[in-house]
Design a protein around this nucleic acid. Structure first.
Lengths: 100, 100
DNA sequence: ACTATATTTCTAGATTTATCGAAATATTTG
DNA sequence: CAAATATTTCGATAAATCTAGAAATATAGT
């Protein structure tokens, strides 16, 4: 993962509402959730929610697929793994033994 | 880990310079690095660097300890683990099998 | 075509953050 | 104590972000 890309993903996750959205999606798994489900769970105005969702999508952390009137949202699980990997990458290269 | 705390940590890591600082520290391991080492590696003005470091410290992602004229910086490794754990927590609770 | 539902786009004001020069503080050494 | 080194605090400006109401768009059902 590129440095800038990782920073962007982390920044987007670093907002209370967006982190909550993302965690709902992670919890939901591949089935995903409709925007309306998320709205109901988090109780935020539609326009605000839409703004945050579009940022998460833009950062490559989730995707949306239309199913009729509903937009189904799903977390991008590989992005999460890559991000976590980036954070721990080269952990303690200078001195072995602190990370497992 | 508390939700707000996790969001804060992620937000602080979500900045190019701060992420670079943090990764240098993760790479350095428990030995840590002096502020001047970081400055040399990243080539940012002192005041800017100090600002970012203080944010990382405030977020509980790193600590500083004075050793003579030098301030030694060290990553808080437990915080990293807890953060990663928080992100993956309850992954796919609704439907088993997507995460390992 | 009309209505209802789902969601986004537009817009604008309020708040937060980033940057960095200059001055201040802390510590060692001569 | 004075000078040198390491780092922070102050201050001010520029840029990005948050929030949410109102209007617009997309789809489905009648």
């Amino acid at each position: 993962m590129e440095h800038q890309d990782a920073a962007k993903k982390l920044a987007e996750l670093g907002h209370t509402t967006r982190l909550a959205i993302y965690r709902l999606l992670v919890k939901a798994g591949p089935e995903g959730l409709a925007v309306s489900d998320i709205q109901q769970a988090l109780d935020v105005p539609g326009s605000t929610l839409s703004h945050h969702i579009s940022r998460l999508v833009n950062a490559g952390l989730m995707s949306q697929e239309r199913q009729g009137r509903v937009l189904r949202c799903e977390a991008c699980f590989p992005a999460l793994s890559a991000l976590v990997g980036y954070l721990a990458e080269e952990c303690c290269v200078e001195q072995q033994g602190c990370c497992d």
